[in-house]
Design a binder for these strands. Structure first.
Length: 199
DNA sequence: CGGCAGATGGGCT
DNA sequence: GCCCATCTGCCGC
């Protein structure tokens, strides 16, 4: 191994077999890879558990949120405000509707494909929001329920670079449990959707 | 430049 | 009506 080459590890199913508030900060710095070469480094996540009034699973299983009740390590993709797709990774035990929303990421590879998908926007705005991230990566309804540990169209890997400094802060764009510090960002990363409030 | 009001839009309850 | 969002335009610093 050369000094600046990364060590890529495939995440195990067990990584996602824990509660979302544990998995969400640990996903920071991990990478999401698509089959066509597009890759992003995750810089912002939010945790949603079944007992959380802000979670889609709070009122039980429906056709829309079904994949969140399935086994961990799979995608939950939902259609937001009639316009955007948003990607989550299911976590927690099977049968417990929980997951981590992928809110923002840093483009790493396949930039030309991301720009084609997102249109004429600044580089920093390619993936700095959940809808933008999904659009840039080509994530839509077809990815719902697919495996992110391996074998699916998108895979989460640990492309280890440097350790990250994690900041926890309130989530964005919700109307219930608005103060819970379940949003996690990499400190001082320019690709987050909104800077966390200074503390 | 940042912040905010308004419009947009589909699927849920 | 409500909602885990985004874009545009308009303000004020």
């Amino acid at each position: 191994m050369q000094a600046n080459s990364s060590i890529v590890k495939t995440l195990t199913r067990r990584f996602f077999d824990r509660m979302p508030h544990i998995v969400a900060p640990e996903l920071l710095g991990k990478c999401l890879v698509a089959h066509d070469g597009r890759m992003v480094r995750i810089v912002e996540t939010e945790a949603y558990a079944q007992d959380d009034p802000a979670a889609h699973t709070f009122r039980g299983e429906t056709a829309r949120n079904r994949s969140m009740f399935g086994p961990p390590g799979h995608m939950y993709v939902y259609f937001s405000y009639g316009v955007h797709w948003c990607a989550n990774v299911v976590c927690g035990p099977k049968g417990f509707g929980a997951g981590v929303l992928l809110r923002a990421a840093q483009p790493m590879a396949g930039i030309d494909l991301m720009e084609a998908a997102r249109g004429n926007v600044a580089f920093k705005q390619l993936c700095n929001g959940p809808g933008k991230l999904a659009q840039a990566m080509g994530i839509d309804r077809h990815a719902d329920g697919t495996d992110v540990v391996g074998g699916g169209p998108f895979t989460v890997i640990d492309d280890a670079h440097a350790p990250v400094t994690v900041i926890a802060c309130p989530r964005i764009g919700i109307s219930k449990a608005v103060e819970a510090p379940l949003r996690f960002v990499i400190a001082d990363n320019p690709f987050v959707s909104k800077r966390p409030m200074a503390r």
